[in-house]
Design a protein around this nucleic acid. Structure first.
Lengths: 341, 341
DNA sequence: CTGAAAGCGCTTACAG
DNA sequence: CTGAAAGCGCTTACAG
């Protein structure tokens, strides 16, 4: 590993050209004779030289890194399988681009904003991902003012100069409602995510609209913070009612699995006494009993698409919104016609 | 945000000193009169100047970043809650140190090694975390030769110059066995993790030893890749036998939850017909039915300890091994005395 | 098509 | 205790 002592000057000398020319050859810039270019590159690789990222960073004012800031309670971050899959998707495209992901996990929104700011101020990243969009999301104007390229997961409800990568989860919720209605359910409830998140309230809105469209009275919705604990508590409340729902649509799989457990604990048979649907089609959903009917999304593909979009924005200066295939209902064993008492 | 145009020269001029002195004051180096130092710092902050990380990186040959490479199948990465919690722990200490985490998720061991190498070659990180230790782990000698500071999660089975941060999970497995034996179980099986991982084979070894110590014949162990799918399949195989076990100890919670589902599907009552224990005490384990008896570990604390250890190594040049509190059994409702047929 | 030089914004011996 | 200068290793106008 003596390799690290080499600099562009060594390569230039060995090739009998100036440092500038080596740089030009390396960066594929015009003005280098093809033969020369090739010779320089060959010599560089023979010598085992690769340009110093730090030096490049200083002179180009770029970091060749992208940033993701996740604001989640450290205690519950583990229960949401979304981010690991999303990140794996992001990495799969970054790794082929010589770029790297800088990840921050922070406890709250205040720290989240500070982190975006310092990441940019320190020049740690050349672009950022914005996930878990909230209503009137302050990050949009802040990032715009910071002048950093960004991509949002979903379309913000405030004016945004950034490309959005979307997956239509409302379609999935609607499909779940229609599936349950077709089975004969009329008392359908929704255990929703946090209303401050766009995806939380959008799924809830889709649920209510679908219920109306089915000619049913607006089903009950109860908001949660997306955590397993609150999903469990919400289920307990819903099932404690005299006129309890015969089906519950959950905003994510972990809550649905907790709901399944509550039903079992209360002696209700799923799906005979209670039908249940989840959201995300996470790995575990097919391995619970009964296997969970859920709405499939593809977080890894979302990650790939977001990374591509952000890279394009950084290189071309602009990037179109991209819409991923809609979330689709995956019917398994946790839903059935409501049982006769 | 005109702040970004400022350089150390601006501050020096305004303070009426040389750039060098500003640098010394900033870095708390001796040779600056306290009063001068204070004045420089005050002026710098008044001007809103913060030193350019890129320039510092180039001259100090440091990146002020730490690296973590995770080799996991993108499809199943989401089902293991370990990493998100671990990372949250790491971040909680890095964020106060002006350091940042560079995360890579790669599909296999080959890519994993390449990634460590390029992270170091590019000077992306000043130190790395080594998780999921394997037998004869090649990463240890490679990282040693690369000359990069590292910390390992657990003690490698090859000579290692790096500090290790350990949690004694064997204690937890032993406690699970003893708990089940005390309840009257004699046919206890183990659904183990992958044997190529140190933690996988260590838990298995602890299981076998504890069985022997209890005077029981070595219980059945079946290796898996830690995935929910294999945990489910292993359970199915174990329960299909004529003399099926009355209790199963799983190497992680997700597999235990899948096992619970298999039992239910087969019409076995848990814990009456089959006792089940998990590992890690993840968030969901208390929200399944019956609530899971499991072995508690603290991935976030592990992350904090590992980060502290690595930082100490980088600053002091050495760092002792640290042993976290042993994994402890958390008894809930999925274990009981074996039911009479 | 090619070279010599300045610049990116810090840090760090070296003098004084 | 303080200053002037070189150096980190690239990129990029500017000349030719």
């Amino acid at each position: 590993m003596t390799a690290r002592k080499l600099t562009i000057a060594d390569v230039a000398e060995r090739a009998g050209v100036s440092k500038g020319l080596v740089s030009f050859a390396l960066n594929d810039r015009p003005g280098v004779a093809p033969a020369t270019r090739e010779r320089i590159l060959r010599i560089a690789s023979e010598m085992g030289w690769s340009p110093s990222l730090r030096a490049r960073s200083l002179s180009t004012r770029r970091s060749f890194a992208l940033g993701l800031v996740i604001a989640r309670d450290p205690e519950v971050i583990g229960s949401d399988p979304f981010f690991p899959s999303f990140i794996a998707g992001v990495e799969s495209v970054l790794s082929t681009e010589g770029r790297v992901l800088v990840l921050s996990v922070v406890p709250d929104q205040e720290a989240e904003l500070m982190t975006y700011k310092s990441l940019v101020a320190d020049g740690r990243v050349d672009g950022v991902f914005v996930s878990d969009l909230r209503h009137d999301d302050i990050r949009i104007p802040v990032l715009e003012e910071l002048g950093i390229p960004a991509v949002t997961l979903g379309v913000p409800d405030v004016p945004s100069p950034f490309p959005a990568v979307t997956i239509d989860d409302a379609v999935g919720i609607r499909a779940a409602v229609e599936h349950l209605v077709a089975l004969g359910h009329t008392r359908i409830a929704h255990v929703a995510g946090a209303a401050r998140f766009l995806h939380g309230s959008r799924r809830r809105g889709a649920f209510e609209q679908a219920m109306r469209d089915a000619g049913l009275e607006a089903g009950q919705s109860v908001d949660t913070d997306f955590s397993i604990a609150e999903g469990s508590a919400a289920t307990r409340r819903l099932l404690a009612q005299a006129e309890r729902p015969t089906a519950i649509i959950y905003a994510n799989d972990p809550m649905a699995i907790a709901g399944l457990a509550v039903a079992q604990e209360l002696g209700l048979r799923v799906p005979h006494d209670l039908s249940i649907t989840g959201f995300d089609d996470t790995d575990i959903s097919r391995y619970v009993f009964p296997a969970l009917t859920t709405v499939g999304t593809d977080p890894a593909e979302w990650g790939r698409a977001a990374a591509r979009s952000l890279l394009r924005l950084m290189e071309a200066g602009e990037s179109d919104d991209v819409a991923l295939p809609s979330a689709e209902l995956v019917v398994r064993r946790s839903t059935a016609a409501p049982g006769r008492p």
